[in-house]
Structure formats: structure tokens, C-alpha cells
Design a binder for these strands. Sequence first.
DNA 1: ACTCTAACGCAACACGAGTCGCGTTAGGAG
DNA 2: CTCCTAACGCGACTCGTGTTGCGTTAGAGT
Lengths: 193, 193
Amino acid sequence: MTSRPGGRSARVREAVLEAVHAELTEHGYAGMTVENVAERAGVHKTTVYRRWGTVDVLIADALDHSRETGWPVPDTGTVEGDLIAIATEVADTFADPERRLVPIAIVAAALQSTRALDAKGRFYAARHAEAAQVVTRAVARGELPPQNDPVELVRLTCAPLYHRIFITGEPVDRATAALAALAALAAARAGLL
Amino acid sequence: MTSRPGGRSARVREAVLEAVHAELTEHGYAGMTVENVAERAGVHKTTVYRRWGTVDVLIADALDHSRETGWPVPDTGTVEGDLIAIATEVADTFADPERRLVPIAIVAAALQSTRALDAKGRFYAARHAEAAQVVTRAVARGELPPQNDPVELVRLTCAPLYHRIFITGEPVDRATAALAALAALAAARAGLL
DNA sequence: ACTCTAACGCAACACGAGTCGCGTTAGGAG
DNA sequence: CTCCTAACGCGACTCGTGTTGCGTTAGAGT
């Protein structure tokens, strides 16, 4: 009888993590407070402080929790189509003024606490591993040479988009997404991965 | 007589911005405080609060100030060598446990304030414009087709490195730096940029 | 050399995030 | 159904960040 995962604790966690998501898409990372999250969840602030402690840990837990729900991997018939679809989804996410706040907050939180850093690593590792299916299928179809690292091709596809968002600050549209996919494919076809 | 840039104000700014750099490489972004910067600079905290206001603005101003000093563009004789040199410098910066804290702090600050976001944009735009010389030279030598965007090739070279650091969390060594340069070159030679 | 004022130093203050002690509630065990 | 305790609610408290008012200093103009 050391823990009691069922019942109230589970309800509180669900409510708090949902409040985290809501507060994030509303005020962004900078405007997010433990107290606001607690109030929105209908829970006292000490409860949140005791179970999570900081905003970054809240985001980290929400991230771990979201990882439980699956993610639809595209299957257009060609690697090119699949990679463009993956890149386009990233671009669309960051084009939405509300949805973009979530991944931005994740990166911000990861820069503040080790807990969030680890959660972010797990999240993207899982996502990229899932997405790498499109490359594995392509290799099986003979579209790509088998020496390529599937996950690395996915990462190379996403890299220019995240680079624009977090480093150069340039806008990311679907054209740049498609270009990123094609550039990554060029490297893969050259057998560099 | 609205401003007085010479004399004391200039000395204070110099001392404060140097203190910002020192505090950053010592405690990182998370452990940086306005008060600590003020004390290290030998200045009262109200002075810093009045002229800058927040940590993010301090970092933004330090970034704008650092942009005044030039940056040595590599010239190895080939685009391949030049791009690898650029990528290697990025990798080396993030391999150093102290130096890496500076660009990390810049990204973190840019996620908090618009002022820092703009400063970061200006900084990387200037850097990439300078680095693009290696591509311009390569096109002049006939190494690359002229339809390529010089700056875009530089960005494509750096993108996988920053992606590893800020998104996936994987380590960045010189091998990955060289690979990133070659992958970007493959896309450029395919005429995709 | 004299004046004027922008910028700085100083101390006291206001405010909000985070903590602590204690009483209360709910849910698992027998 | 009853007991027991982990988890929550509540209010008071601490403490550090950032602010304000005022006196002082230094440097630019004449």
C-alpha cells in the first residue's frame, strides 16, 4: 500500500495535464504559471507544487503522457511522398499560432530542467522511430540503398525546419518543407547516411 | 543634449555586457540573474534594471554588441573543405561545456522575449551571410551550379547540428559535422537550392 | 571654469512565487 | 462496513525579484 494510482490521484493528474496543454496554447511558455495551471485544473496550488514542483516538470510529465497516444504514419506509396507528408505536418504545426506554442514550450522547458530534457529526448526518439517506418518500407521496395539509417533520414528531413524556427527565425511554409524532404533524400540516395 | 554615449555610460555598458558573458559561461541561462550581473560588473542593480530590465534584454544587447566584431571565414580551397570547417566549428563550440552555454542561452532568451528573438535573427543572418562567401567562391570556381542560394547551403549545413542539440539531444561530434556538410552539398549539387 | 542634467548609487518598499504546518478527505485493505 | 493513510485543501509565512523616490556624480555644452 505505498501508492494509490487509481481514483483521485489519476483524476487530478489528468485534469492538471490537460490544464497544462490549455494554458500552453493560450499564454505560451513565458506566460505559464503553476498557479494558473492549478486553478484551471480546479486543484489547489500546493498540490501541483508537491507533485510536480515547477512548470518544466509539468511540461515534461505532459510530454511523457502524450507519448502514450499513437501517431499516424503517412503511407503515400513513395518515400518522397511520405517524407514530404512528414515535413508538411511539421510545417503546418508551426504555421498554427496556437499549436506551435506546444513544441516551442517543450524546447524552452528542456533548456531549463534536466527532467524536461529527458522527456523531450524520449518524445522525439519515439516519434522519429515511428516515422522511420516510411524509410524501412522504401528500402524494402528498393527505392533506397539499404545502407541508409532510417531514423537519420527522418531527422535530416526535419532538421532544416526546426533550424528555421529556433535558430534563424525564418517562416516555415509547405514549400520549404518539401524542399527539406528532397534535400534529405538527395543525401540518402548518395548513400551518405 | 538628449543622450550621452561617451564616458561613464559606455564604460558601464562594456562592464555589464562582459559580466553577462562571464555569468553565462559560468552558470548558464537558468542560473543567470540581473543582480549577479550587476554585482560582477561593479554596478548597482537598479542601473541594470533601468537600462535593460530583464535577463533576456541583457543577452540581446550582448548579442548585438558581439555582432560588431568580425568572424574569420574559412578558405581551404574547396567548398567541401570550407563547409566542413564551418560545421566543425559549430560542433566544437557545442562540445565545449562552457562555450556551448552561450548559444544555448541565446536560443533560450529568444524564446522568452521579442527583443532577444530579433537580436538572434540579426546575429545568425549576419553570420550566415558571411559564411556564404565560401559558396559564392565555389560557384565562381565552377564547383557548384550557379542557381544555388549561397546562404541556404550554409543553413542546410548547420541545420542537422542544431537539430541534434536542441531537438533530439544527441551528441554532436566532428564526424556528424562532416556528414552534415556532405549531405548539404549533395542537395546543392542536385540543384535543389 | 561654470552650469545643467542624464545617468548612477542607495535604501526602503511592494509583490508574487514557492514553502510549511495542520486539518480534512477519499479510496484501498482487511 | 470499518480503519488507516496517502493525497489534497487551506491559510499563513518566507524570501527573492523587481520597483520607487531621492540624493549624488560625472560629463557634455558654453
